[in-house]
Amino acid sequence: VTVDIKGMEYHFDNPEEAKKFAERMAKELGGELKVENGTLKVE
């Protein structure tokens, strides 16, 4: 699973970990979490 945090890509084997990480980063950065082509994106 790929997580894109404002252009920086992180790769996770575990989808649950990827989702938790993306949600935490969205909250910390005040960004919006989206799913695009199987990639979790925070913008």
Score class of each variant (00 low, 15 high):
Val3Leu: 05
Arg24His: 11
Lys27Trp: 13
Ala26Met: 08
Val35Ser: 09
Leu40Lys: 02
Ile5Trp: 08
Phe12His: 01
Glu9Val: 15
Leu29Ala: 04
Gly7Phe: 03
Lys27Val: 10
Phe21Leu: 01
Leu40Val: 07
Lys34Met: 09
Asn14Val: 04
Arg24Cys: 15
Glu36Gln: 11
Ala18Gln: 00
Val1Lys: 06
Asn37His: 08
His11Tyr: 14
Met25Leu: 07
Asp13Trp: 08
Thr2Asp: 03
Glu9Asn: 09
Phe12Leu: 01
Thr2Ala: 05
Glu17Leu: 06
Glu28Pro: 02
Pro15Ser: 09
Met8His: 12
Thr2Phe: 09
Asn14Phe: 04
Lys41Gln: 06
Lys19Gly: 03
Lys6His: 14
Val35Asp: 08
Lys41Thr: 10
Glu17Gly: 02
Thr39Asn: 10
Glu17Cys: 12
Tyr10Phe: 11
Val3Gln: 01
Glu43Phe: 15
Thr2Ile: 14
His11Lys: 10
Val42Lys: 02
Gly7Cys: 10
Glu32Trp: 15
Ile5Ala: 02
Pro15Gly: 07
Leu29Arg: 02
Leu33Met: 09
Ala22Gly: 04
Glu28Met: 12
Glu28Gly: 03
Lys20Asp: 09
Gly7Lys: 01
Glu17Trp: 03
Lys6Met: 15
Ala22Leu: 08
Glu16Arg: 06
Gly30Thr: 04
Glu28Asn: 06
Glu16Trp: 11
Glu16His: 09
Phe12Asn: 00
Pro15Leu: 14
Lys34Glu: 05
Glu23Asp: 08
Lys19Met: 14
Lys41Val: 12
Val1Ser: 07
Leu29Ile: 08
Lys41His: 09
Pro15Ala: 13
Lys20Ser: 11
Asp4Phe: 15
Gly30Ile: 04
His11Glu: 04
Lys6Cys: 15
Glu9Arg: 15
Asn37Met: 06
Gly7His: 03
Tyr10Asp: 00
Lys41Glu: 04
Glu43Ser: 12
Glu32Met: 13
Ala22Thr: 02
Gly31Ala: 12
Ala26His: 04
Val42Trp: 05
Glu23Leu: 11
Val35Lys: 06
Ile5Asp: 01
Asn37Thr: 06
Lys20Glu: 12
Val35Trp: 15
Tyr10Arg: 02
Lys19Asn: 07
Leu33His: 04
Gly31Lys: 04
Phe21Ala: 01
Glu36Leu: 12
His11Val: 10
Asn37Ala: 07
Phe21Thr: 00
Thr2Gly: 02
Val1Cys: 14
Gly38Ile: 04
Leu33Glu: 03
Glu36Tyr: 11
Asp4Val: 15
Met8Leu: 11
Met8Ala: 08
Tyr10Pro: 01
Asp13Ala: 11
Val42His: 03
Val1Pro: 02
Glu28Arg: 10
Met25Tyr: 06
Thr39Ile: 15
Phe12Thr: 00
Pro15Glu: 12
His11Asp: 02
Glu23Asn: 04
Glu36Phe: 11
Gly31Glu: 06
Gly38Val: 03
Glu43Gln: 12
Leu29Lys: 03
Lys34Gly: 05
Glu32His: 14
Met8Lys: 14
His11Asn: 06
Met25Ala: 07
Gly30Ala: 07
Glu28Leu: 13
His11Cys: 13
Pro15His: 12
Glu36Gly: 09
Met8Cys: 13
Lys20Gln: 12
Glu28Phe: 11
Lys41Pro: 03
Pro15Tyr: 15
Asp4Ala: 14
Glu43Asp: 11
Asn14Asp: 13
Ile5Lys: 01
Glu9Gly: 06
Thr39Gly: 07
Glu28His: 10
Arg24Tyr: 13
Lys34Gln: 07
Gly31Cys: 13
Ile5Asn: 01
Val42Pro: 04
Asn37Asp: 09
Glu17Asp: 12
Pro15Trp: 15
Met8Gln: 12
Lys6Pro: 02
Glu23Met: 11
Arg24Pro: 00
Glu36Asn: 09
Leu40Met: 09
Phe12Met: 01
Gly30Ser: 08
Asn14Tyr: 04
Glu43Gly: 11
Asn37Tyr: 05
Asp4Asn: 14
Lys34His: 10
Leu29Thr: 07
Lys41Asp: 04
Glu16Ser: 08
Gly38Ala: 05
Phe21Ser: 00
Asn14Pro: 00
Ala26Arg: 06
Ala26Gly: 03
Glu16Val: 10
Lys34Pro: 03
Leu40Ser: 03
Arg24Asp: 09
Glu43Trp: 14
Ala26Thr: 06
Met8Asn: 08
Lys41Arg: 13
Val3Asp: 01
Tyr10His: 04
Lys34Leu: 10
Lys19Leu: 14
Phe12Val: 00
Lys6Gln: 13
Glu32Tyr: 15
Lys6Arg: 13
Leu40Phe: 11
Met8Asp: 06
Glu36Lys: 07
Ala18Ser: 01
